[in-house]
Simulated scan of single mutants.
Amino acid sequence: METADGDGRGTTERVLTLLGLLQQRQIWTGPELADRLGVTARTVRRDVERLRTLGYTVHSEHGIGGGYQLGPGPDVPPLLLDDEEAIATAVSLLVGAGGAITGDGDAGLRALTKLDRVLPTRLRHEVAALAGAVESFGGGRAPVDPRVLMTLARACRDEVEAGFGYPSSTPPDRRRVEPYRLVASDRRWYLLAYDLDRDDWRSFRVDRMREVAARTWRFRPREMPAAASYVQEGVAVRAYPNQARLLVRAPADTVRAQVPAQAAVVRPRDQESCEILSGADNLDLVLMHVALLGHDFTVLDPPELAQRCRLLAERLAAAGAEP
């Protein structure tokens, strides 16, 4: 039978509370923990020993600046997570840090910090390798199945082919690819991959994939384009039948703050100007949006868009003339 101590809580509840405190910050003194738990310093020492017997590594240092500190252990401790769960949780939090955790982002960051403090070294290496297969541009995004992200991240890391169903106007709907990077936009997740059936680079929306599976066939990595830039240009420019390139007389950082990442690619030209690349079904929309940015600009491509700009300018001038 569990006994109560101090504030009347059972031993198990108190030990779990102690574990939570140790996960909240780097180091606690014995008196601080005793005060927070409402018990004696001797009870704190006993509870620390209970955590150690459960598999948690708790370091203790005496003297000034000393105290109790939770450290990584040789195994994932009992009552926490097994290897697969720990990796999946850590990577989900890592990839969510770019914006998928909304509303309570601080809670997600605290959870990741707690998990990182108790991950064994072998799992930290795997989490770091998986996170290295992820890039992003933009901000928050719609969530996708973390199991799919894990499968694709592992395939990127291990350099093995991946297969998945993907809706397309030209068969086959089943794709066979060499996966290279996961890229997060401010709306969706994408996979940058080399499409083996089309013999070219492609970006795929992860939320449209079906029956995603990593294969056992390893590939020799090709020289790939810059992942985030390639995917962003595909989303903002290549996906549309009409593309435009404009010179804007304002710093690139200023314009990026005004233009959503999925709407245009902003490339610096010098400290005072930049180029905007954008696509649309109707390029008049691009002209209107750029004009509303409030900066001087010049149409670079296509030439017919410059003529269209002059016609619109004449129409706007006429609309503002005295009746």
Rank of each mutant, 00 (worst) to 15 (best):
G8V: 11
G8F: 11
G38A: 10
T43E: 13
R45F: 10
Y56E: 06
Y68A: 02
Y68G: 03
Q69A: 12
L80T: 15
L81D: 01
G99Y: 10
A100Y: 12
G103T: 10
D104F: 14
D106Q: 13
A111H: 04
L115I: 09
R117G: 00
P120H: 08
T121K: 07
R122Y: 12
H125G: 03
V127Y: 03
A131D: 10
S136Y: 11
G139P: 01
R147S: 14
V148P: 02
T151Y: 05
E161Y: 09
F164Y: 04
F164V: 06
G165Y: 09
Y166L: 00
T170R: 13
R175A: 02
V177H: 01
D186S: 15
L192I: 00
L196T: 13
L196W: 11
R198K: 07
D199L: 11
D200M: 12
R202D: 06
R208G: 06
R218P: 13
A226F: 07
R249I: 11
P251F: 10
A252Q: 05
A261K: 04
A263M: 02
A264G: 00
V266F: 03
L285G: 09
M288I: 15
D301Q: 14
P302D: 03
A306C: 10
R308M: 08
E314I: 00
G320S: 15
